[in-house]
């Protein structure tokens, strides 16, 4: 059965009569069946080509086996699909509307089209909507998709003046200022810098929900942030928008790890970008094991001019699937030597 929102459901589904398990099962992909147990396969048609994939796969995975590159924004291998960005939609024969490839499970006999006129229009519009309302300057993937589908975000008119600091938080559900349509509403607003480790630039937020998932029960179980507000005024927020140091945040940085647009960014990266010294092309990436504890998470150190500028973890890392803690994520300053703080 397909996974559904809210994601709590999965963890709670157990036989009524069975005793409560006492050890919580960590979230993540379902373990592969032991070798030798064949998984049933289903047959479907993708763009006229027949493909056989294991039962329970998603349409996205089926597309991948055929080498079809499906754009995704809110999807990430190590999180449950929330299917909110709708850029991965495909045309399913017999369905009234398009369906999200990232979450829709394959069924025998399905026929889908991934590049029809309808699909291309929806993908282009979604990308235009995002690029016309959000600053996508640090989201190269999104920009590449926009180009692929020929999006013209500028056709909605010049951007409305950015909001002042704190203004987006005053929005009330169900109320908005009247518009004359001469400018296009955006989520532009000042960057939130309230701690030394990472910044939150919600003018770049496409509301993919991934940071909320990572902060919540799919990785950190801290629940410092959630989606607040409604409609276009929806936003990622702490309770009453309190600064991060007052919130439940433990600075694991897993939200930065999953952010697709650079809205959440290491302070170190943000400062270097502001100073114009951030040179991604020149950076070297080196994998190592985190030195702090016995868990043994893989760290990818991003090094520029012989200095570590940020740390990430590969998503296919089998220990924690790309998630880290504050030490692995931020605690590498000591490597840079004494007297070179910050």
């Amino acid at each position: 059965m397909e996974k559904k929102k809210p994601p709590t459901q999965d963890r709670f589904s157990f036989n009524d009569s069975a005793p409560c398990p006492t050890v919580p099962v960590p979230p993540g992909p379902i373990p592969a069946p032991p070798p030798g147990t064949p998984r049933n396969r289903v047959t479907l048609t993708v763009d006229g080509k027949t493909v056989r994939v294991p039962e329970g796969s998603t349409l996205l995975e089926a597309c991948k086996t055929l080498g079809i590159d499906t754009p995704t924004l809110c999807y990430l291998e190590n999180l449950n699909p929330v299917n909110v960005c709708r850029v991965c939609v495909v045309e399913l024969e017999g369905a009234r509307t398009l369906v999200p490839a990232c979450s829709r499970r394959v069924e025998d006999g399905m026929a889908i089209r991934t590049d029809s006129e309808r699909v291309r229009l929806s993908r282009r519009m979604v990308l235009e909507f995002l690029a016309s309302s959000v600053d996508v300057s640090t989201a190269p993937e999104l920009q590449a998709y926009l180009e692929r589908y020929g999006g013209q975000p500028e056709r909605y008119g010049p951007a409305t003046a950015p909001a002042a600091a704190g203004e987006p938080e005053t929005a009330r559900a169900g109320v908005h200022c009247p518009t004359d349509g001469q400018t296009a509403a955006t989520v532009a607003q000042p960057v939130k810098i309230d701690n030394d480790l990472y910044v939150r630039d919600y003018g770049k937020c496409i509301l993919c929900y991934k940071c909320v998932q990572a902060c919540g029960e799919e990785a950190q179980n801290t629940f410092a942030i959630a989606v607040a507000g409604r409609g276009f005024d929806s936003r990622i927020s702490t309770e009453y928008a309190v600064p991060l140091p007052d919130s439940a945040c433990v600075y694991c940085g897993n939200c930065i790890g999953v952010c697709p647009t650079g809205a959440l960014m290491f302070k170190s990266e943000y400062d270097m970008r502001e100073a114009g010294t951030w040179k991604e092309a020149e950076q070297e990436r080196t994998d190592t094991i985190c030195p702090y504890c016995g868990v043994g998470c893989t760290l990818t150190l991003h090094v520029q001019d012989n200095r570590i500028v940020k740390a990430t973890s590969p998503l296919d890392q089998e220990v924690t699937r790309g998630h880290l803690c504050i030490k692995g994520r931020f605690g590498w300053q000591f490597v840079q030597g004494k007297g070179k703080k910050k």
Binding site: R86, V126, L207, G231, F232, S234
Partner: peptide, 29 residues
């Protein structure tokens, strides 16, 4: 625009762009 929940992009931004385009159409500008 007011009642969209804001979860998916087509509706969250689409209802805003729809109101703007309609205002342009009727604004006569």
């Amino acid at each position: 625009r007011d009642e969209s929940c804001g979860q998916c992009v087509p509706c969250r931004v689409g209802t805003v762009r729809q109101e703007e385009a309609l205002s342009r159409l009727f604004g006569g500008n």
